[in-house]
């Protein structure tokens, strides 16, 4: 099998240029879809029969939670590629996923709390999803903390890659154990309402938001990854050529 495409793909100058060209193709559709999804979710979708308009928080909460998990998966996959093939650009991608994922974990947590206020009467209950999201935030912070504690950039890349892979094995376990934990400590029904029953007019804006957030993540990641590539390649000639322009 011919692997030259793989090596060309993994070459920093190639990816740096490619990422620059691709960014607008993700960023603008992301902006359009998110605005359209927000309009559809906030104005067009019918109110939920139980939660009224309160359920509309789902249009910002669920995509944020999705992005937070997706960023972790990407981070671990990129970290694994970087570790196995000693690929600098993969580590650059992994490094750029962490802050984005951490921020959207915060978004998912805060919007979940704002949703909880009318639903449960309080901002925080130990709901399994929120709890798992909180643990995810700690995992992100641990990753970022480890990365910043190691001075040598190559060592930081490789050590945090191991942590990301260990973490991604743990994420589903945390998820299910938290659900199990919640099911045995059945809180005396704090939920005022059932789950929203989703119909198509409600679902369509949500799907648009999911696609929009996915594109947004890719765009953000590409911009950050370009910077990370530059940081890792400061000594190379191509960097001086690119920067001099």
């Amino acid at each position: 099998m011919d692997w030259t495409w793989f090596h060309r793909f993994g070459s920093p100058p190639h990816l740096y240029g490619l990422a620059g060209k691709l960014t607008p193709w993700f960023a603008w559709p992301a902006a359009l879809l998110i605005l359209a999804g927000l309009y559809g979710g906030l104005a067009l979708a019918p109110p939920d029969y139980q939660q009224g308009d309160g359920f509309r928080i789902i249009y910002v909460h669920a995509p944020s939670a999705w992005l937070s998990l997706m960023a972790y998966t990407w981070m671990a996959a990129a970290a694994a590629i970087g570790l196995v093939w000693r690929m600098k650009v993969a580590h650059a991608v992994a490094a750029s996923c962490a802050p984005i994922g951490a921020w959207f974990t915060v978004a998912a947590l805060c919007t979940g709390m704002l949703w909880g206020k009318p639903m449960w009467g309080t901002y925080w209950v130990w709901d399994p999803r929120l709890t798992a999201e909180l643990v995810l935030l700690f995992l992100y912070l641990g990753y970022i903390g480890l990365r910043s504690a190691i001075e040598d950039p190559q060592r930081a890349d490789r050590a945090s890659a191991v942590l990301a892979i260990v973490g991604v094995v743990n994420v589903p376990i945390v998820r299910y154990s938290v659900e199990w934990w919640n099911s045995i400590h059945q809180a005396p029904s704090v939920m005022k309402f059932g789950k929203p029953s989703i119909s198509w007019p409600m679902l369509t804006p949500l799907l648009i938001m999911f696609v929009g957030f996915t594109l947004l993540f890719v765009a953000l990641m590409l911009v950050r990854a370009r910077g990370e590539i530059l940081r890792r390649e400061r000594q190379s000639r191509w960097v001086s050529e690119v920067v001099a322009q």
Binding site: F138, L139, L141, G142, G167, V174, V178
Partner: peptide, 8 residues
């Protein structure tokens, strides 16, 4: 910070 979240 690294160990405790994984130990949940």
């Amino acid at each position: 910070l690294l160990t405790l979240p994984l130990a949940v």
